[in-house]
């Protein structure tokens, strides 16, 4: 299956958006804070890697770290300002879009980062160079796979730690959590900056995979929506939701996009997206993954069994 270059690049995107979805999911699904401007953090990661690499030849590893620190700080600052002035809930979400749009417009006019013309990474030379995160499509597939795996392990780890408990408490009822000693102000800033930093890591790798960065696509509203489709479809607040949701939604989107092209129905993919989203919200309001878990409970199999089974089929 991995011999087909189309499947490899599609799966790379699925896994990268799994990771981005996990980052978003941590913030809303566990921390209870809605962001609809995650493209801001993705874009900061992409530009950190792009600028350092393209302009100065500095390794993307450094770029990823820089992007994570930058996005984490920007996320923390937005959160601090917002909660300091009691902007919360849906108003906080609106603030995240505003911040992302502000950044997109700023980067669109900023010559140093390529403005609207964007930034281009040097064409791959064939060999795999881990120190420069350079390689072929298969190499990036494994990078994305590693990231998604890290995301699953990280989500599980945080979820089972005391952070997971106090974040869920804060998500379910903020003032009741405060009455039980949870310092929600600090915890909201913490979960948002962790989410922002991980989104930046995903953005940096996404930029490398795509080979170019354009402000409208990497920091646009469209990307913010793409980030949240996976966890919403797969199951909010669950560890495997973003993976399952991305596996379901992204190939469908690509398929419909291709079908739309050949049938000359522009926007077929977006229409299908809309229909799928509405159907999921209607029929499986808590997402696909919880539905799989319920099904497996009904037939007495552990919910992860199908993962191993599908892998065995591949081998």
């Amino acid at each position: 299956m991995l011999a087909n270059p189309y499947v490899i690049s599609l799966m790379t995107i699925v896994l990268l958006f799994t990771f981005l979805g996990q980052s978003w999911n941590l913030m809303l699904g566990i921390g209870g804070q809605l962001s609809i401007g995650h493209a801001l953090f993705v874009g900061l990661g992409a530009y950190s890697v792009g600028v350092l690499y393209v302009k100065y030849g500095i390794s993307p590893w450094v770029g990823l770290l820089t992007g994570m620190i930058l996005a984490g700080s920007v996320g923390a600052s937005i959160a601090w300002l917002s909660f300091r002035f009691e902007v919360r809930g849906i108003y906080f979400a609106l603030l995240t879009i505003a911040a992302a749009e502000f950044a997109r417009i700023m980067f669109s006019g900023w010559e140093f980062v390529g403005a609207m013309q964007g930034l281009f990474f040097p064409a791959p030379t064939g060999g795999i160079e881990i120190s420069m995160l350079r390689g072929d499509a298969r190499f990036y597939y494994f990078v994305a796979l590693a990231l998604a795996a890290l995301g699953i392990i990280g989500t599980e780890f945080i979820s089972r730690s005391y952070l997971g408990y106090v974040w869920r408490a804060m998500r379910d009822d903020e003032s009741a959590a405060r009455a039980l000693g949870v310092r929600t102000f600090q915890h909201k800033i913490l979960v948002i900056s962790i989410s922002a930093a991980t989104a930046a890591a995903g953005g940096g790798v996404l930029a490398l995979v795509q080979g170019s960065i354009f402000p409208d696509s990497i920091m646009g509203m469209g990307l913010s929506v793409d980030v949240l489709i996976g966890p919403v479809v797969g199951g909010l607040g669950t560890t495997f939701g973003p993976l399952v949701g991305s596996l379901a939604a992204i190939p469908l989107n690509h398929l419909m996009s291709a079908l739309g092209d050949s049938l000359r129905i522009p926007g077929l993919n977006n229409i299908t997206y809309g229909v799928v989203l509405i159907s999921v919200v209607w029929f499986l309001p808590d997402g696909i993954w919880p539905a799989i878990v319920r099904l497996c409970k009904a037939i007495q199999a552990p919910p992860t069994a199908w993962l191993w089974q599908s892998r065995k089929v591949e081998e």
Partner: peptide, 24 residues
Amino acid sequence: VRPMREMSVLENAMIGAFSWTRNV
């Protein structure tokens, strides 16, 4: 009453303990 709805009874009762310990 204000239970944390998505959390079990036990998990609800755990929250307060995190004001003095980080050990789950």
